[in-house]
């Protein structure tokens, strides 16, 4: 078993119920192939940097899950067969929830004081203070509020919020 992350873009020509159903199709597929969802991250409809299949927008979803290689072939096959999944990317999940990811809670809490606090993510406070003070001036803290990842950390292994884990 390995931890993977899979991000896919759904065709924007659908309503919320359809998005739900399309995402559920993937999570079900992972569940049915003895995988386990660790985190589901819906970024919502986002403008794409270039058109894909003539769409300029897409509904982004990122899943972090555990699974085996059989699940992955099944997953990729499913993406290819079904129409609404206009782009996907499945990679080995590298992040450790406790390790500092440049993005995520760190930059949010660091550079955007009014952004919603992500207190569920524990970080060493002194480290945060030093990075804040050491930040070069040319990295202007502008336009940070439109963060794509609406962090909904479903579980944090051996974190302080263990009970929030949702098994699928």
């Amino acid at each position: 078993m390995r931890t993977y992350e899979s991000t896919f873009i759904l065709s924007p020509q659908a309503d919320d119920a359809a998005f739900d159903q399309q995402i559920k199709a993937i999570t079900d597929l992972i569940g049915n192939n003895d995988g386990k969802i660790i985190k589901e991250d819906r970024w919502g409809i986002r403008r794409m940097a270039y058109p894909i299949k003539k769409f300029t927008q897409g509904f982004y979803t990122r899943l972090v899950f555990e699974g085996n290689s059989k699940l992955l072939t099944e997953l990729e096959r499913f993406y290819k067969l079904e129409d609404p999944y206009i782009r996907y990317l499945t990679i080995i999940f590298e992040g450790d929830p406790h390790e500092k990811i440049f993005d995520d809670a760190d930059s949010d809490s660091n550079r955007a004081p009014h952004a919603k606090p992500t207190e569920d993510r524990e970080r060493p406070a002194p480290a945060r203070a030093t990075t804040e003070s050491r930040k070069p001036d040319n990295i202007a803290p502008v336009a940070i509020v439109e963060k794509p990842s609406t962090e909904t950390a479903v579980s944090e292994p051996d974190g302080k919020d263990e009970p929030e884990k949702t098994e699928e």
């Binding site: 991000t7 992040g95 990811i101 930059s107 050491r134 940070i144």
Partner: peptide, 21 residues
């Protein structure tokens, strides 16, 4: 290296704000 300064190990592809720099 700015990533070393911040002690970053993983650079996420989803973090376009950082990547764009």
């Amino acid at each position: 290296c700015r990533f070393c300064e911040e002690k970053v190990r993983v650079i996420g592809f989803y973090n376009d704000r950082v990547l764009r720099r």
